[in-house]
């Protein structure tokens, strides 16, 4: 019996399936996003402590969630590449890295904009913000390593190794940052108590952002597969031309 991942191993079948799925995922993401925004702005109350600024939470928390989930997805794809040599694993990891970095950046930006009215400054060395900042560095490292290597198959494997090292160290980093934070200042934990009236818009927005990410990820994977086909065809065309030229030269020498 074939599992779904095995069936997807054929890029042609993946292109076919993703072409069929993409409109549905994008549509669902769009509908959920609109309804989530409606709930966030019109159907949910202002927080009694934070006032209207709590509405930043509805985009900040989904971005922060995605920043972690996407790194997990990259680690999973890397595992798939190194252990099972799944042909689409590297396509998935490569396509996800810039998207994950973008959501991590947005989590930092919205967190800082949320923090200014709350803490009085744009940046506080709060445990959560610091962990997300380090996660952002890990994304930058992944992207920089891949762009520095010319051989694509070596780049894929080396980036996968780095992603797996990162995912092993990440819990230790999280733990140490939490420890460091409690050592220096009492933790300012105010997101742990989310009022039930805010839970629904938050959930809808989180699902909408997740679907949005998967739609973008599928599209980026499709682009990457096409890019690889183009590249393969070009090298093939160049090789073919060289062969013709060599034949012509041989022919000329024989005459």
């Amino acid at each position: 019996m074939q599992t779904l991942t095995q069936r997807l191993a054929n890029p042609a079948r993946f292109m076919e399936l993703s072409a069929r799925l993409l409109p549905w995922i994008s549509g669902a993401a769009g509908i959920l996003l609109v309804s989530g925004l409606y709930l966030a702005f019109f159907a949910s109350p202002a927080d009694y402590q934070q006032g209207e600024t709590v509405r930043i939470m509805y985009i900040h928390v989904p971005c922060a969630w995605l920043s972690m989930m996407v790194y997990g997805l990259i680690a999973l794809s890397s595992f798939g590449l190194l252990v099972f040599r799944h042909p689409l694993a590297d396509v998935s990891a490569k396509a996800a890295a810039p998207l994950g970095a973008a959501f991590t950046f947005l989590a930092l930006l919205t967190g800082s904009l949320w923090g200014k009215p709350m803490w009085g400054t744009y940046w506080v060395w709060d445990a959560r913000l610091t962990s997300v900042l380090i996660l952002f560095f890990l994304y930058l490292g992944l992207m920089a390593l891949r762009s520095a290597l010319e051989d694509e198959s070596a780049a894929a494997k080396l980036t996968a190794i780095l992603a797996l090292v990162g995912v092993t160290i990440l819990p230790i980093i999280k733990f140490s940052v939490d420890w460091w934070n409690t050592l220096h200042q009492p933790s300012t934990d105010f997101t742990s108590t989310v009022d039930p009236s805010m839970r629904l818009p938050l959930l809808v927005m989180a699902v909408a952002f997740t679907l949005l990410f998967f739609a973008m990820h599928l599209k980026a994977m499709r682009n990457e597969i096409l890019r690889r086909r183009v590249k393969a065809l070009r090298t093939q065309a160049v090789a073919g031309r060289d062969r013709l030229a060599a034949q012509a030269a041989n022919h000329g020498a024989a005459e």
């Binding site: 920089a144 520095a148 980093i173």
Partner: peptide
């Protein structure tokens, strides 16, 4: 980063986050 040309800076970017703990 053994085979990369601008290895030094890349090495710092990769390794320094791992040194946080």
């Amino acid at each position: 980063t053994m085979k990369t040309r601008r290895g030094g800076l890349l090495l710092a970017l990769i390794v320094l986050p791992l040194y946080v703990p």
